[in-house]
Amino acid sequence: MLIEILVSLFLLIGAGFALIGSIGLVRLPDFFTRLHGPTKATTLGIGGMLIASMIYFSVQTGQLSLHELLVALFLFMTAPVSAHLLAKAALHLKVRSIRPYPVESENREGR
Protein backbone atom coordinates (compact mmCIF):
# COMPACT_ATOMS: atom_id res chain seq x y z
CA MET A 1 0.00 0.00 0.00
CA LEU A 2 2.74 2.39 1.04
CA ILE A 3 4.80 1.27 -1.95
CA GLU A 4 1.82 1.89 -4.23
CA ILE A 5 1.49 5.46 -2.96
CA LEU A 6 5.22 6.05 -3.33
CA VAL A 7 5.26 4.72 -6.92
CA SER A 8 2.17 6.79 -7.78
CA LEU A 9 3.77 9.89 -6.31
CA PHE A 10 6.95 9.53 -8.37
CA LEU A 11 4.94 8.74 -11.51
CA LEU A 12 2.81 11.85 -11.12
CA ILE A 13 5.81 14.07 -10.30
CA GLY A 14 7.61 12.71 -13.36
CA ALA A 15 4.65 13.16 -15.67
CA GLY A 16 4.10 16.64 -14.23
CA PHE A 17 7.63 17.77 -15.00
CA ALA A 18 7.50 16.26 -18.48
CA LEU A 19 4.25 18.12 -19.12
CA ILE A 20 5.70 21.40 -17.80
CA GLY A 21 8.70 21.01 -20.10
CA SER A 22 6.41 20.48 -23.07
CA ILE A 23 4.24 23.44 -22.10
CA GLY A 24 7.42 25.51 -21.99
CA LEU A 25 8.27 24.29 -25.47
CA VAL A 26 4.98 25.68 -26.78
CA ARG A 27 4.61 28.74 -24.62
CA LEU A 28 7.99 30.46 -24.36
CA PRO A 29 8.65 33.30 -26.79
CA ASP A 30 11.81 32.40 -28.74
CA PHE A 31 14.04 29.43 -29.51
CA PHE A 32 16.67 30.11 -26.86
CA THR A 33 14.12 30.34 -24.07
CA ARG A 34 12.29 27.29 -25.39
CA LEU A 35 15.53 25.36 -25.13
CA HIS A 36 15.34 25.56 -21.32
CA GLY A 37 12.06 23.70 -20.90
CA PRO A 38 12.84 20.32 -22.46
CA THR A 39 16.49 20.12 -21.39
CA LYS A 40 15.70 20.49 -17.73
CA ALA A 41 12.11 19.71 -16.88
CA THR A 42 11.66 16.79 -19.25
CA THR A 43 14.90 15.16 -18.14
CA LEU A 44 13.89 15.38 -14.49
CA GLY A 45 10.44 14.09 -15.45
CA ILE A 46 12.03 10.97 -16.88
CA GLY A 47 14.10 10.71 -13.70
CA GLY A 48 10.93 10.60 -11.59
CA MET A 49 9.33 7.96 -13.81
CA LEU A 50 12.45 5.80 -13.72
CA ILE A 51 12.59 5.98 -9.91
CA ALA A 52 8.94 4.89 -9.83
CA SER A 53 9.75 1.99 -12.15
CA MET A 54 12.77 1.02 -10.04
CA ILE A 55 10.70 0.86 -6.85
CA TYR A 56 7.84 -0.94 -8.55
CA PHE A 57 9.87 -3.73 -10.16
CA SER A 58 12.14 -4.16 -7.12
CA VAL A 59 9.08 -4.83 -4.95
CA GLN A 60 7.16 -6.78 -7.59
CA THR A 61 9.88 -9.28 -8.47
CA GLY A 62 11.48 -9.34 -5.03
CA GLN A 63 14.95 -8.59 -6.36
CA LEU A 64 16.74 -5.34 -6.92
CA SER A 65 15.95 -3.74 -10.28
CA LEU A 66 18.44 -1.01 -11.04
CA HIS A 67 18.75 -1.07 -14.82
CA GLU A 68 16.53 2.01 -15.07
CA LEU A 69 19.53 3.90 -13.68
CA LEU A 70 21.27 3.32 -17.01
CA VAL A 71 18.61 5.19 -18.97
CA ALA A 72 18.57 7.98 -16.39
CA LEU A 73 22.36 8.37 -16.39
CA PHE A 74 22.47 8.29 -20.17
CA LEU A 75 19.81 10.98 -20.45
CA PHE A 76 21.45 13.21 -17.85
CA MET A 77 24.71 12.97 -19.76
CA THR A 78 23.25 13.55 -23.22
CA ALA A 79 20.67 16.25 -22.44
CA PRO A 80 23.27 19.04 -21.94
CA VAL A 81 25.19 17.91 -25.00
CA SER A 82 22.17 18.02 -27.29
CA ALA A 83 21.11 21.36 -25.80
CA HIS A 84 24.57 22.74 -26.49
CA LEU A 85 24.52 21.44 -30.07
CA LEU A 86 21.06 22.88 -30.67
CA ALA A 87 22.06 26.27 -29.28
CA LYS A 88 25.15 26.24 -31.48
CA ALA A 89 23.11 25.37 -34.57
CA ALA A 90 20.61 28.11 -33.76
CA LEU A 91 23.38 30.69 -33.28
CA HIS A 92 24.89 29.60 -36.57
CA LEU A 93 21.58 29.97 -38.42
CA LYS A 94 20.83 33.27 -36.65
CA VAL A 95 17.43 32.14 -35.46
CA ARG A 96 15.05 34.88 -34.37
CA SER A 97 15.69 35.87 -30.75
CA ILE A 98 13.90 38.32 -28.46
CA ARG A 99 17.28 39.41 -27.09
CA PRO A 100 20.18 40.80 -29.13
CA TYR A 101 22.82 38.33 -30.20
CA PRO A 102 26.18 38.38 -28.47
CA VAL A 103 28.84 40.30 -30.39
CA GLU A 104 32.20 39.06 -31.75
CA SER A 105 30.63 36.29 -33.79
CA GLU A 106 33.85 35.81 -35.82
CA ASN A 107 35.44 34.21 -32.81
CA ARG A 108 32.89 31.40 -32.81
CA GLU A 109 33.78 27.94 -33.89
CA GLY A 110 32.07 26.74 -37.05
CA ARG A 111 31.82 23.18 -35.88
Partner: peptide
Protein backbone atom coordinates in the same frame (compact mmCIF):
# COMPACT_ATOMS: atom_id res chain seq x y z
CA UNK B 1 31.38 22.65 -16.42
CA UNK B 2 29.38 23.31 -19.60
CA UNK B 3 27.14 20.30 -18.91
CA UNK B 4 26.67 21.43 -15.33
CA UNK B 5 25.68 24.90 -16.47
CA UNK B 6 23.14 23.38 -18.86
CA UNK B 7 21.56 21.29 -16.13
CA UNK B 8 21.28 23.99 -13.46
CA UNK B 9 19.10 27.05 -12.76
CA UNK B 10 17.83 28.70 -15.91
CA UNK B 11 21.09 28.51 -17.88
CA UNK B 12 22.16 26.66 -21.02
CA UNK B 13 25.73 26.75 -22.30
CA UNK B 14 25.51 27.76 -25.94
CA UNK B 15 29.00 28.06 -27.35
CA UNK B 16 32.69 27.93 -26.54
CA UNK B 17 35.04 30.43 -28.14
CA UNK B 18 37.85 29.10 -30.34
CA UNK B 19 40.55 30.01 -27.82
Amino acid sequence: LASTVSLTPGTVSADLSID
